[in-house]
Amino acid sequence: MKKKFVYKVDKCLGCKSCEIACAVAHSTSGDLFNAVNEFDALSPRKKVYASSGKNYPVSCKQCDEPQCVSACMSGALAVDPKEKNVLYDETRCVGCWMCVMACPYGAIKPDKKSKKTVRCDQCKDKDEPQCLKACPTKAILWTSS
């Protein structure tokens, strides 16, 4: 079942713990202590934006009609026929940035170093997204709608 993030804006302090946890989770070494040495490779897939005095974490929203998938011209992005979530096959990404240009939330970023796009994968290889665990105020919810 597809799961999506919901954020309690009033609880978000803008501390960016989620960004750090995300960057670490997607680093080669996987822990903060060593991840700081991978400076260039650190690219969080979640970013906290401040607007009108409030904080909003932004990452892939697993849209029901994902624009990134129709824009992808290399076959790297597809909708899982069963779960309906967006699948990303990094080996097919050519770094054309079509998905970056198409994402209505600005949630997909170009990683110039790897020439691949980086996007939230909901920490698919872990039990749950690491941003969720890292949030000190429980402002991030991960729910199946």
Binding site: K4, F5, V6, Y7, K8, V9, K47, Y49, A50, S51, S52, K54, Y56, V58, K61, D64, Y105, G106, A107, S145
Partner: peptide
């Protein structure tokens, strides 16, 4: 540089709310 989705979220209609 800081311009992002939250700046436009009040101006558009979303089928689904992810900020509550």
């Amino acid at each position: 540089d800081s311009f992002g989705y939250p700046d436009i979220s009040g101006l558009i209609q979303e089928k689904e709310q992810s900020y509550v």
